[in-house]
Design a protein around this nucleic acid. Structure first.
Lengths: 340, 340
DNA sequence: ATTGCTCTGAGACACGTGCCTCATTATGAA
DNA sequence: TTCATAATGAGGCACGTGTCTCAGAGCAAT
């Protein structure tokens, strides 16, 4: 009736609990034949280890660290909010989660910090940092020291390094599809705005965007990316310049995670009717912009899911388990004013 | 350093473990003042009950039942797939999940079946069934007998009954927004097709759809809903009749969860260029239709998330706990060919 | 037969909580 | 004051697994 225990397993396999333990936990000094007997019994009675009991016995707990940028943008605020939330949720599972902020523009400092981390006081790290050689090396050394690490949102694309985030090329493609289909005009140019094009994520989004625009909506032309460097003044200057230099701009795609400055500027400046504006990431600002109509669609990823998925993956790594991939895939979500 | 236990709690509160147990588990015969002392200590040291240990001690396991329609549609197949998957995921948490199929067209039989369920062999039920008085009564009696129940996908809207699913009015609104914005024509009619309009879900989607179409896209007119009753022949007949009676049909909205018949018919029959077709629910069929272009967008809900959320909610109910609402909200997702 | 291995068994304790019994103390009513 | 009852304490066992130790059993080489 109830679940078989190691005791049942020992009985069925015709061995002692000590031997069952040796087999289950891969200890040495067991004859192959005995191992086979135990494995056969596992299958026969459908034994599943009671992880709660195991963790209780081991006094096991998990300590994970999120390494996140210092930047005060709204997307990051959402992430932080969900990390806090996750602390509560995973507390029952003996998971402790901390956050450490690094200056995203100082790869050296990031590398130095990563070098201080050790598997003694840490079971895993989720890293959101720009992809630079220094950071890359630091991560690889971190892994060599036995600290499981995964890329969080920004893909480091280090082989064997897991990654929690969306496919940014597909995100850019989705933006182009929406912009192309929403736009009611036959011919026109599209403004592409970003905080910076230094990051791999921005480049990938731009690549996907251009690809779909060129192949599916050849009547639309994406202008060179404008970079705001996070300054609203600069955003105002470059966006109005672009608008006065090109009278046929029919839409805008803000591809960085911080959309406030460009979208604010667009609402101030006169834009033609049927102008289509797209941005990334659900934040209180973009939600409000959707409601007011200053944004037509937002392409986003579920920050709560991102955080929880990262924690689940780190835990699975620590336990040398697999995760259920279908649960961990981060979807590219499309928000309109109707499905907030 | 490590997590405080009931022993620590007892020490800090200046009481015995027995009293801590009495307070934590709400047993009678404890003075209010003592309860306060313990609660204060809980806050002070940040005590969190180790649920694994508690469940281990209680030998607690959860047995949940999904009551699902017999119907063989693809959406249901997806759900079943994810229930199977969830069995594996939640096995570690001592959750056993079973599925029972009922004839969705026979409310009486459903009610009779629900009447056989008892809290002796069941900790909770997730019910996906049409909203009829008989089923409604059976569910209420079930709850009175102490079996936690929740509406799954189809909202029974019984007060105090939780529900896992999407807001179908908003889903209809989203469909209308997409159809209106994707359509490149100024004037036209829209085909609305459903298996049946008997269900509350269909009616709500239709209501949301009409609302947005009327207010935001007054140049588009939604035709009366066509009902296929699940027959491809009938679908072919009524859709082609509608298309020849109305030369200005510029799009179609399939609002039921089974889209195969109507979409298949639409691909056979000649439709005008720029025809926009929308359907619900991600299935292998709708994914393929998106890729081929026979569907322009699919409005869907994450079936894996639905199943897991239902299980988590049932477990929280059993434990008299709250769930984290932000994790449990089911999003209305929009799929294009680019973000599959 | 002895020695030195390798493999296995028996048993104990720990983890944190639930749940029980029995004893003891505190409290309030008579 | 006495007594009854309420409130609390002390302690033990259970849950399933991990992790020890120690004792043997089995086996091969000498």
């Amino acid at each position: 009736m109830s679940r078989p225990t190691t005791k049942d397993l020992a009985r069925v396999a015709g061995v002692s609990r000590a031997t069952v333990d040796r087999v289950l936990n891969g200890r040495e000094g067991v004859k192959t034949k005995t191992i086979d007997k135990v494995n056969a019994a596992i299958k026969e009675i459908g034994f599943v280890r009671n992880i709660s009991a195991a963790n209780l016995s081991k006094g096991k707990s998990y300590r994970f660290l999120f390494v996140l940028p210092k930047s005060g943008d709204l997307f990051l605020a959402e992430i932080l909010r969900h990390v806090e939330e996750a602390k509560t949720v995973f507390a029952a599972d003996m998971v402790r989660t901390d956050v450490h902020h690094v200056d995203e523009n100082d790869p050296h400092k990031i590398a130095v910090f990563l070098a201080t981390l050790s598997s003694d006081d840490l079971d895993g790290v989720a890293i959101m940092a720009p992809q630079t050689p220094q950071v890359r090396d630091a991560i690889m050394r971190l892994q060599e020291r036995g600290v499981p690490a995964l890329s969080f949102i920004s893909n480091q694309s280090i082989s064997d390094m897991e990654w929690v985030g969306i496919d940014n090329i597909a995100a850019g493609e989705t933006a182009a599809t929406l912009l192309g289909r929403f736009s009611q005009v036959r011919l026109g140019k599209i403004l592409v705005v970003s905080e910076t094009m230094q990051s791999r994520d921005s480049l990938e989004r731009r690549r996907g965007f251009d690809w779909v625009l060129n192949t599916t909506f050849p009547h639309l032309e994406a202008l060179p990316s404008l970079e705001t460097y996070g300054s609203e003044d600069r955003a105002r200057a470059i966006i109005s310049a672009a608008l006065s230099n090109n009278t046929d701009i029919i839409g805008a795609y803000v591809l960085s995670s911080e959309a406030r400055a460009p979208v604010a500027v667009l609402t101030e400046i006169f834009v033609p009717p049927h102008f289509v504006a797209l941005a990334h990431e659900r934040t209180p600002f973009t939600e409000e912009a959707l409601r007011k109509g200053s944004l037509d669609a937002v392409i986003t990823q579920d920050t709560g899911h991102l955080v929880r998925s990262a924690i689940r993956k780190l835990r699975a790594k620590t336990d040398m388990r697999d995760t259920l991939n279908s649960q961990e895939r981060i979807r590219i979500e499309i928000l309109l004013s109707t499905n907030l």
